[in-house]
Amino acid sequence: MPRRQHWHDLPAGVRRGVERHTGKVSHAESLPDGATCEFAVTLHSSAGRVFCKGGPADGPGAWLYRKEARINPWLPDAAPRLRWTVERDGWLLLGFEYASGLYPSLEPGSPDLDAVADLLAALARELTPCPPVDVQPFTERWRGLVNPELVDGDTLLHTDMTPRNFLFGDRLRLVDWSAPCRGAAWIDTAFMLVRLIRAGHGPAAAERWAARIPAFADADAEAVTAFTDALVRLWDRMQRTAPASHRGPLLDAARQWHAHRLSRRPTAV
């Protein structure tokens, strides 16, 4: 996790560059959690609020910021609009439309689950076919983990279904499109299904929820099972090579789902 920088830590020239877009910044609130970028703040000015994120222009995360800026114009309005970018004095910052709200609850019985399903269904519909923007194919990202034909597709995917990327205000928004891929339309729902198991749903109940999303309901069963197998192997490798507190519970959830998928396969006679 990079060390988080604050507004007054930035070079004066960078702050002036931002204020050409925002007007004079009266104060800035650093994001308390949920972001791995070096700089993530809500800026307050006479023109209103804006969410600003970024980091060193030559840092390890710069390519993610550039990718997010490149695809933003192609995203539906569930994603906050990118208003401006500032690149100077060694920094790259992105300024987004401010979106307020709370993280949705994914626990069993949560009233937020309907809105999450509706949003995932809408995104799969609106982002198929994939907009004409250069993004990595999911088959390339998961090369060697799964048969490419099973996850190939022409939908622009978000791929990072942590609840912290959803904001529930007057409507549900999906933020942080820094890891997009082009692949099968059901993949984002599959990633969210693991999060539901992590939140306390049984695998069968989580699959019933996911079946409300047409892209997942129409997915090939063997492709979904292969996805669960690949996800377990990927997250197990990540946890062994770079342990993190959040990965253990997610890996356990993925294992539960994979075991459930295998238990439903017909037994050979």
Rank of each mutant, 00 (worst) to 15 (best):
M1I: 10
M1L: 12
P2M: 06
P2C: 00
R4F: 02
R4K: 11
H6N: 11
W7I: 13
W7L: 07
D9G: 03
L10A: 02
V14F: 08
R16E: 15
V18I: 15
E19L: 08
E19W: 02
T22E: 00
V25Q: 03
S26K: 13
H27A: 01
A35R: 10
T36K: 05
F39E: 10
F39I: 08
A40Q: 08
V41D: 11
T42P: 05
H44M: 08
H44F: 13
S46K: 09
A47N: 14
G48L: 07
K53F: 03
P56L: 12
P56M: 06
G59T: 03
Y65M: 14
Y65N: 12
K67P: 01
A69W: 04
I71F: 03
I71A: 02
I71M: 02
N72G: 10
N72H: 04
W74T: 02
D77A: 14
T85W: 05
E87A: 01
E87R: 07
D89E: 15
D89M: 06
G90K: 05
W91C: 09
L93D: 10
L93C: 10
L94I: 04
G101M: 03
L102Y: 11
Y103A: 10
P104V: 02
S110D: 03
D112K: 01
D118V: 11
L119D: 06
L120D: 00
A121V: 04
R125P: 03
R125T: 11
D134Y: 00
P137L: 03
P137V: 07
P137C: 04
R141D: 03
R141K: 13
W142A: 07
P148R: 06
E149Q: 10
L150Q: 13
V151E: 05
D154H: 11
L156Y: 10
L156A: 12
L157I: 02
L157R: 04
H158I: 01
H158A: 02
H158K: 05
M161T: 15
T162N: 14
F166C: 00
F166R: 00
F168A: 08
D170L: 02
R171I: 00
L174G: 11
D176V: 07
W177V: 02
A179Q: 10
C181V: 04
G183H: 08
A190K: 09
L196G: 00
L196K: 04
R198F: 03
R198I: 01
R198C: 05
A199I: 04
G200L: 10
H201N: 03
G202S: 15
G202Y: 00
A204S: 07
A204C: 01
A206L: 09
A211T: 05
I213Y: 06
A215G: 07
A219W: 05
D220R: 11
E222W: 02
A223P: 02
V224W: 06
T225I: 04
T225S: 14
D229G: 14
L231E: 09
L234H: 15
R240K: 13
R240S: 12
T241K: 12
A242F: 08
R247E: 10
P249Y: 09
P249E: 12
D252L: 01
Q256S: 14
W257D: 06
L262M: 14
R265Q: 15
R265N: 04
A268R: 15
